[in-house]
């Protein structure tokens, strides 16, 4: 059910790496850094939601309060 999240993250990763390469070529190093940072932060927010879902499900399953 969350498989699309996985492919979304892969797409973001590919877009970010291409974008930073293009920006590097264009000479704007700092903007390339900014785009990589933005990409990582977006992916991190998705991953954190999934991690919290994992931890809450494990907590309820094994009564780990």
């Amino acid at each position: 059910m969350e498989v699309d999240i996985l492919f979304k993250i892969a797409a973001i990763g590919i877009v970010i790496s291409i974008l930073s390469k293009v920006l590097d070529e264009a000479g704007r190093k700092e903007q390339a850094q900014m785009t990589t940072l933005v990409g990582v932060v977006i992916v991190l927010m998705m991953v954190i939601q999934l991690i919290s879902q994992l931890f809450s499900s494990v907590k309820t399953m094994f009564q780990l309060y």
Binding site: V3, L6, I9, I16, S17, V43, M46, L50, S57
Partner: peptide
């Protein structure tokens, strides 16, 4: 090789998906 941090986050996500 381009974005190792996103590759790591992808391996985290696939581990979570399989557990869920």
């Amino acid at each position: 090789e381009d974005r190792p941090e996103i590759a790591l986050q992808m391996s985290i996500v696939v581990g979570i998906i399989i557990f869920l």
